[in-house]
């Protein structure tokens, strides 16, 4: 059984620890939502798990090995990252963008070949973007770009998918499309970890008993549990520092 274990991890920068004592086990076919106010360290947690930022304390284990002992390509072959709003600055085609995920599988001086191209094409059709393969990435809508970025993560053939606010700045339809895609990927056996500002998105994707929701408060307090518990109005009120009566007024 392959696992991604986060053990008593402290995240942050040399002079500022943002959150500490984060423990988390991620298994195949599991979805984990991460909620927390702006600046609570959700992206920092991702950067630390990806090995881009050194842990302040604790460790991240990938199949039992600390990621600090693994090379960057070794990590990239296991954990894929979908960043928030990737802007298309240059005119790369959709295929070229997805092919970039083959980088950790290729040596420094080689080019993606027919196999890599096929993997990229398959990944695109897995998220329903097969028809867009020859389009220019910068010409796509926000929702289409997000799906292409998810396809790129798939093309790296990683088992763990980290998505940073995959539904941010998308319209209603595209949000549902991205959430449905995440559910499908989970059902296909990938581990899906994503941050969101919307508790409903966490409820939607992390609805099964094995799924979990992690919350990080502004003060760096971390708790993890079944989604329904983590997203009770009392817990949410504490997390975002608002009065619980706001929720009862809403319902």
């Amino acid at each position: 059984m392959t696992l991604l274990n986060v053990e008593r991890l402290s995240i942050g920068y040399p002079r500022r620890v943002i959150a500490s004592d984060i423990s988390l086990d991620v298994a195949a076919g599991q979805a984990i939502a991460i909620l927390g106010p702006n600046g609570s360290g959700k992206t920092t947690l991702f950067r630390t798990v990806l090995g881009l930022l050194a842990p302040r304390a604790g460790r991240v284990l990938l199949d039992g090995k600390s990621i600090t002992t693994l090379s960057a390509p070794e990590i990239a072959r296991q954990i894929a990252y979908v960043p928030q709003n990737s802007a298309g600055l240059f005119n790369f085609s959709v295929l070229e963008v997805v092919e970039m995920a083959r980088a950790p599988h290729l040596s420094w001086f080689s080019q993606p070949g027919a196999v890599d191209r096929a993997i990229a094409a398959v990944s695109l059709s897995q998220v329903g973007m097969g028809e867009f393969i020859d389009r220019e990435f910068s010409e796509l809508s926000g929702g289409e770009r997000q799906l292409v970025m998810i396809a790129r993560a798939l093309a790296s053939q990683a088992k763990y998918l980290l998505l940073d606010e995959p539904t941010a700045s998308l319209d209603f339809g595209n949000r549902l499309l991205v959430l449905e895609t995440l559910i499908k990927l989970k059902q296909r056996g990938m581990a899906v970890v994503f941050t969101t500002h919307d508790p409903d998105h966490a409820r939607r994707v992390c609805s099964e008993s094995r799924d979990q929701t992690l919350t990080i408060s502004r003060a760096g307090q971390v708790s993890i549990g079944p989604t329904a518990d983590a997203l009770q109005s009392k817990a949410l009120a504490a997390l975002y520092g608002i009065d619980q009566s706001v929720f009862s007024a809403q319902r």
Partner: peptide, 16 residues
Amino acid sequence: RINLLALPDDEARALG
């Protein structure tokens, strides 16, 4: 590989 430099630094590093 130089294509990867056109990505934001974190994104390129996350691709190994």
